[in-house]
Each structure stands twice: as structure tokens, then as C-alpha cells.
Computed example of a mutant assay.
Amino acid sequence: MKTIFSIFELPYSISLDVSALGGAYDIEISKVKGKLYTPHLPAWEKNQEDPLGKLLLAPELADSWSRGSDQIFWGKPHRYPSGESSVHSILLAFECNSLDEDGSAVHKGFISWINLLLDYIEISTNQNVRVDQSLNVYGDNFHLFYFDENGKSSGISDEKVIEICLDSWQKSIDAKSFQKACELASLGFQPKLCYKLFLEANRAYLQKDYRKTVIECGAAVETALTDAIVKKLQLLDTSESDIDRRLRGNKTLGGRFHLADSQLGLDVLQIQYDYRSILVEPRNQAIHDAEFVTRQVARQAIEYTKKLLVTLVPDMPET
């Protein structure tokens, strides 16, 4: 049994909570099991002078590693003393029976795996950490290597190259959420449709397309509401024909809210939020009147959408 490694560099950092630093997370790519290791905080002294000037430390496995004379850049803290940090590099390690077969399998499955991992991080935190699907090429920053009997490192070649476009934004991801993202990505579970639509809304917001933001928020919520309504009616032993009739009688987003809230008593966060002014009206105005949507309106819509999805659809993956 041999171990193959990859020091994966993120062109744009992922923001990690202090609880997620120095961790070892179970992963699996193409049925090859492994670990993802995150770097450590530097050793801060009390009243540390220039604490944010200190770099993150390598995972223990890579403590003495370097690239020739160059130090490996793992990232740096961006908040003191809480320790939230921008992670630039992560260490992947896989236990292999065959270097060639398992190494090739990891290469082939990596793109799908990293896509899912970054999607789940984005859903959890609103960070724009994703593979840019508009690029039909892949960069060259994912390499596998191993150590031979003499301790010399050797690369495992593959023609595939990978390019990752990331943009750190909003909340740092904590250890529990990071582990969950690793698990779901390793299982290959796609996010449910409502969460895929939420990702589109989040990315539109980051691109300052606020009109598209509220439209995609409306689509995400309508999808979640429809599923929740159907499940509720099924629990009430409503016939399929009656379910279809009630849905057809409440086709619009406002109609779905009316059916869920006024008729079925579902929790749509109606006590904390005025969903009509926050989402229904801005979405209708954006679609039907082509009205300009402000950043504030878009942000309120996306915040409400995220909280409502967590309430109505707590399980993110499509299983």
C-alpha cells in the first residue's frame, strides 16, 4: 500500500473558520479513499505584533516539505485573535494499491469532486468558491506524487490539467460544514434543484446582476414550496388529482405562498419576514415590468431565500 499526495493550490482563497484549520477530513474520489488536510494557524503570542503578517503552517504530514528552495504558501489569517483564515493550499492524500490505476482514477474523478465540494461550500457560506463552468479548459495545478523507498518524490503523470476559479466571499466555513461538504462531494450527490437555483442566484449577486438574483431566488423558493406543499397534502391523504388541482389554482409564486401559508400552515418564516415585499413583489416587477433591482433588495431576497430553503429543505443533496 502506497500513499499518493497532491498539494492543491487555490488561485483564490477559501475562508475557513478556526475550527476547520488543522483538520483531517475523509474524502473519496473515484472509489479511492483519502484525506484532505487543512493548514494550521501560526503560533501566536499574547498581544502578538503584526499577527496577520504570519503565514499559516503546513499540515503535519507536510511540515518539512518545500518546492526546491521555495516555501509552500498555505495561506494566511485574516482575523485576529479569532483565527479566521484565507486558505490558499490544501493537502490531499490517498492510500493506493496501484499507483498507476488509482492515480489515474483520482485524476479522472477530480473535476466532478471539486465541483461538488465547492458548490456545497458555497451553499453553506455564500462564498463564491466554484469551478468556472464557462471555461472549457482545465489548468495545471493538480498534480499527484508519491515517495519511493529512498524518500524521493516522483510525479504521477496524466494529460488532464485543471484550472479552478475561486472568489472568497461572506462567511467562513466551519469544521462541521467543511466535513459535510467533503462527504457529499465524495458520495457524488448533486444538490437538489432548489439549491442549484440558489447557487445561480448567489453567483448573479456576486456578478452584480441583481435583477437575475431575485428571479433565481423566486425560482428556488417556488421549487421548494411546491415540493413542501405536495408532501404536506400527501400526509393529509389528498388524492393526486386534488393535489394537481390545488397547484394549478395557485400557479404563481404568490399563489404558492398563499397555498403554503394561509391554507396549509407551513412555516415560511412569515413571522420574521414579509415574504411579499422581500421576494414576491421584487421578483414579479423584475420579470413583468423589467424594473431595476437595487443591491439592497437583492441581498434581502437572497438572505430570505437561503433561510427558507434551510427550513423547507434541510437536506441539500439529491439522493
Score class of each variant (00 low, 15 high):
Gln127Met: 05
Leu36Gly: 03
His40Ser: 12
Asp70Leu: 12
Thr294Phe: 00
Leu312Lys: 04
Leu36Gln: 01
Asp289Trp: 00
Gln170Thr: 05
Ile229Asn: 07
Gln272Met: 08
Leu235Trp: 03
Pro59Asp: 09
Ile156Asp: 09
Phe292Ile: 14
Ile4Thr: 05
Val131Leu: 15
Met316Ala: 05
Lys160Ser: 15
Trp169Lys: 13
His78Thr: 11
Leu36His: 02
Ala185Thr: 01
Ala260Met: 06
Leu135Asp: 11
Glu216Pro: 00
Asp140Tyr: 11
Ala301Glu: 08
Val230Ile: 15
Arg295Ala: 11
Ser239Ile: 01
Gly255Phe: 04
Ile14Arg: 02
Ser15Pro: 00
Gly53Glu: 10
Glu183Ser: 11
Arg276Leu: 05
Ile162Phe: 15
Glu9Phe: 10
Ile121Cys: 04
Val87Tyr: 00
Pro42Arg: 03
Ser177Asn: 14
Glu216His: 09
Pro59Arg: 10
Asn128Ser: 09
Ser177Leu: 07
Ala220Arg: 01
Gly155Thr: 12
Pro191Ser: 08
Ala58Cys: 06
Tyr205Ala: 04
Glu240Gln: 13
Leu279Asn: 06
Leu166Ala: 12
Ile111Asn: 13
Glu163Asn: 09
Ala20Ile: 02
Ile114Val: 14
Gly109Lys: 00
Val214Gln: 02
Arg283Gln: 07
Ser241Ala: 13
Lys35Asn: 07
Val161Gln: 10
Glu303Asn: 13
Thr213Phe: 06
Leu91Asp: 10
Lys212Ser: 15
Glu122Ser: 14
Trp44Val: 01
Ile14Asp: 00
Ile229Ser: 03
Asp242Met: 15
Ile302Gln: 10
Gly188Leu: 08
Leu10Trp: 06
Thr223Ser: 12
Ser66Met: 05
Leu118Arg: 01
Lys33Leu: 07
Leu269Thr: 04
Val230Gly: 02
Ser157Tyr: 14
Asp315Tyr: 06
Thr238His: 02
Gln71Trp: 03
Tyr146Gly: 04
Leu184Ser: 05
Ala62Pro: 02
Pro77Glu: 08
Asp102His: 12
